[in-house]
Design a binder for these strands. Structure first.
Length: 304
DNA sequence: AAGCTCGTCAACCGCACCCCA
DNA sequence: GTGGGGTGCGGTTGACGAGCT
């Protein structure tokens, strides 16, 4: 079945020969691609326009970067994917010289496995249960864990969410504070049962939040879905609790940032169970990766 | 050496969107 | 408003090579 753009003509399919590449390069160099459907005829190729376009974009374009992905590129992909999901073209825009196809292949063949190996759901970036991890390792296929995605929609929790959705925040919190540079922190991601319970309690207490609060690689934030922009300090932690936990200067800085937005603070403070949350854990989990203090390119992204 | 399995990646397919007549 | 052509995008396929038995 050919493309509608070339259904009337006899077209060649499959791998491109060097001669075909030459013809396409010469044509586009001399004339530009213009209307892709007319390129094969003008370039003397027995291909459809769509195939020419793909070949040019994914392989022949002069500004393409070759070689394997760098660690920095890998981290960027993970960070952007956490926010955008499988929007490969958007992700590729943050990696100069890389194509959506390249990013997608790299994700499916490499990153996905790494995340699963670390017990993270590659779709949601949430911490997987041991059962889910086993399942994903056995069936390393995106379609196999769609069910997880449906049960745990990524990163969103709002005032209308069910208790299940709210407690999803707890599951979201853990991986998000560690993922950003998972290769650096994978060995330090030690989470006790009591921490998990405390987080769950924290999530349960956040029942009156407004808007959609999400976790970014840069820490707590609020994603305005209509604008796709981040607001700082979407989730507020009570100041006295940080003090009680003995958080130091960095925590002060954090709280100063958080307190600058009192949007949710009062409700969070009012509903927070001061005895059930381990701030030492939050402190140790957040601050080492500089999640509050560094406003990096990922923040800029949300935003785009 | 031959056959098999698995991973990678180029290419294809089908759908959605945009633009224009 | 609408239909058709062109384009972009994400999911999927299949060829190919490396490693293993």
């Amino acid at each position: 079945m050919g493309h509608h753009c070339c259904s009337k003509q006899k077209v060649k399919r499959g791998l491109w020969s060097p001669e075909e590449d030459d013809k396409l390069i010469k044509h586009i160099t001399n004339h530009g691609h213009g209307c892709w459907s007319s390129v094969p005829k003008l370039a003397g190729l027995q291909r459809c326009g769509k195939s020419c376009r793909l070949r040019w974009i994914n392989y022949l374009r002069p500004d393409l970067k070759r070689g394997s992905f760098t660690e920095q590129e890998e981290n960027t992909i993970i960070d952007v994917h956490r926010i955008l999901g499988n929007r490969w073209a958007q992700i590729a825009k943050h990696l100069p010289g890389r194509t959506d196809n390249e990013v997608k292949n790299f994700w499916n063949s490499c990153i996905k496995k790494k995340l699963i190996a670390q017990g993270l759901d590659p779709n949601t970036h949430n911490l997987l249960s041991s059962n889910q991890t086993k399942l994903l390792k056995n069936n390393n296929n995106a379609s196999d864990h769609d069910s997880f995605q449906q049960e745990t929609p990524p990163f969103t929790i709002d005032s209308t969410s069910s208790k299940t959705a709210q407690s999803h925040l707890a599951a979201t919190l853990l991986p998000c504070v560690n993922i950003p540079h998972y290769d650096q922190y994978q060995n330090s991601m030690i989470v006790s049962q009591s921490d998990l319970m405390a987080l769950d309690q924290f999530a349960a207490n956040c029942s009156s939040m407004e808007s959609n609060n999400v976790m970014s690689s840069s820490g707590f934030g609020t994603l305005n879905e209509s604008t796709c922009m981040w607001d700082a300090g979407g989730i507020e932690l009570p100041f006295e609790q940080q003090q009680k936990a003995g958080a130091g200067q960095e925590a002060d800085h954090v709280m100063a940032q958080l307190n600058s937005s009192d949007h949710l603070q009062n409700e969070a403070v009012n509903t927070f169970d001061s005895n059930s949350f381990d701030f030492d854990f939050v402190d140790s989990a957040l601050l080492p990766s500089g999640v509050y203090c560094n406003v990096n390119s990922m923040d800029q992204l949300a935003w785009d």
